[in-house]
Design a binder for these strands. Structure first.
Lengths: 332, 332
DNA sequence: TCCGAAACTGAAAACGCTTTCATGAAATCG
DNA sequence: CGATTTCATGAAAGCGTTTTCAGTTTCGGA
């Protein structure tokens, strides 16, 4: 374990001053050929790496982006994370990642922790905070949030049009002749949960069908929640021929609940999800779902933040959803 | 956007010296009641947060743990990540996360990037590097790797006994009367892939069965790989009544491949996985598998590293696997 | 041959904190 | 009551960089 070697050691070894070494490193001013070589040799010899902390202290920028996710183990957020990772690849930025565990309080505390660590910007996946709170945080550091739309100088929100997407999912079921359509909703209080519920209702109303409270079960975006919702739905004894689940994970849970009761998909019941996780492809049968470009969403979030940090003010493009027809829906 | 307020501003406001403010913050020496209050008031008034960079520069410790995962979107690594997160919760440490994308080269580069950022320690999930390389890195910073076993002062490896686990998985199939058992292997070159393959073979040999190359298909721990492996297995025209997949994700892919061909599980074919991901529970039918305590593995990795950083040298306890019987295996 | 511009360089200050070091005041002790 | 600890504090040094500032050379042009 060599002690820390500094720019001063290099300078001594190369027979120049520390300033010159620094200039060599940053490349901001020209350094004579002969000294360049001496410095390069010294760096090589001493195996010197500049201390990023000192650099950051001086420059004020840590080249670090803070990420607040809600669940580190979630395949959905994982995909978003991967998108951000790709966006920042090769830029010298790194990711400091924390989880809010779907708790507004924890999300806020952890975001502030990121700020205390002087991250250059923050991305929040599906924030549980209000627009106001996000705006308030954005006074300290530029922010990007996913799962809702928003467009302010220092705080932008990126999301598909959840309401419209849910509308089209429900409408697709209606087009297939379903009239009694149940909904497994998302985590209560989240804007996207609410938007999807509204889209579902609007589609029904547009088709002249009155939404039935017995056909709406509370979920929480999790597999277990989806399974519980099936119980709730069946116990309420409202008959239905199709289910629109607020996300694929709920759909997966629901699928098991149905399997347990011997209800076949799609022969007895049609099922449609939301997100298009990788696993939607591997469900039995493969799940028809609304594709949310999750990876691209993360990538877009990363790029948008990078732009903000670079002072570029390009207009944000919002991601688009898409219906992916597989095999879990059948004509009624 | 207030300019940076420093300990000196606080000192001025409170009518004390910067040293005293620092002492108040660190609590290392006693400060008189009266000044404590004055400082507290000043901090409140100015909304002061100490600059972590300056602290780190001084102390040499960043209170940051670097994590190298192989795939940010993986449910397996996600669960491990969650474990680490829990282990460090409340300790003041934060996580700098990078991905090696299963590339030895990239893993090494990114690990060095973490070192350059002066992380206090590194955890690698399922490292693609050799023991030697890990040992070499550990000279610069304490390391914990998962997915293999290892016990050195500054580098410890944490894993279930993969060979024995695979042995028992295969043996379970044998006990159920299966004689022709196929194997979908993991990513080539990984130590755990190799260990699981060896355990599979040993179980067969112990039962007096000669391993058959036609019954071993190459996978890569992914869903797509599992599906491809099914094609490979069926095209090789070796008959078999059960499959041992190197992980649950492969099993999920295999399950879809079988579904496509109208092969029922477990009626026509038994299937056993490895890991016990959440989704194993939600497969149709729920998957019998070897449970690897993934979350605990991450947690253990976090705790072990924390111990190393604190200079405690407790003997490492290795995690244990367990057979979880669900519904994907039937007597032959 | 002289002059201003350009190229190159070192000393020193600054980033914001912690930690000796030194010192005066207060508390303890025989 | 005088001598010794202990307590509380400020000044200053230091963590490892980058960035003025202030030259010194070097060079092209007149």
């Amino acid at each position: 374990m060599s002690q820390n070697i500094t720019v001063l050691d290099v300078a001594r070894e190369a027979g120049v001053s520390a300033s010159t070494v620094s200039r060599y490193l940053t490349g901001v001013t020209s350094v004579s050929k002969i000294k360049q070589e001496a410095i390069a040799r010294a760096i090589e010899l001493l195996d010197f790496t500049p201390n990023v902390l000192a650099q950051s202290l001086k420059s004020g920028s840590t080249k670090t982006i803070g990420i607040v996710t809600q669940a580190l183990e979630s395949p959905f957020f994982g995909e978003e994370l991967k998108g951000v990772e790709q966006a920042i690849a090769g830029t010298g930025y790194a990711l400091l990642i924390v989880s809010g565990h779907w708790q507004a309080r924890e999300e806020k505390d952890h975001a502030e922790l990121l700020i205390a660590r002087r991250v250059d910007g923050i991305i929040i996946f599906t924030s549980t905070a209000s627009d106001k709170q996000i705006q308030s945080l954005s006074r300290q550091v530029p922010m990007v949030v996913t799962g809702r739309r928003m467009d302010m100088p220092r705080a932008v929100g990126l999301a598909v049009d959840n309401e419209q997407a849910a509308f089209e999912a429900t409408q697709y079921l209606l087009e297939q002749g379903h009239r009694r359509i149940a909904h497994i909703s998302g985590r209560v209080g989240q804007p996207d949960t609410e938007a999807r519920l509204q889209g579902y209702k609007r589609a029904l109303k547009t088709a002249g069908i009155k939404p039935d409270a017995k056909l709406i079960a509370g979920g929480d975006f999790s597999e277990a929640g989806g399974m519980l919702a099936i119980n709730q739905l069946l116990e309420a004894r409202g008959s239905f021929t199709a289910i629109f689940a607020a996300n694929d994970q709920s759909a997966l849970g629901a699928r098991l609940g149905l399997y347990r009761r011997g209800i076949r998909v799609p022969e007895d019941l049609s099922l449609i999800g939301f997100d298009d996780l990788l696993l939607a492809n591997y469900m039995l049968p493969p799940l028809t779902t609304i594709r949310q470009p999750t990876f691209e969403l993360g990538k877009l979030a990363g790029q948008t933040l990078l732009n903000m940090l670079a002072g570029k003010t390009e207009t944000v493009v919002q991601p688009q959803f898409e219906l992916v027809v597989r095999e879990s829906v059948r004509r009624a």
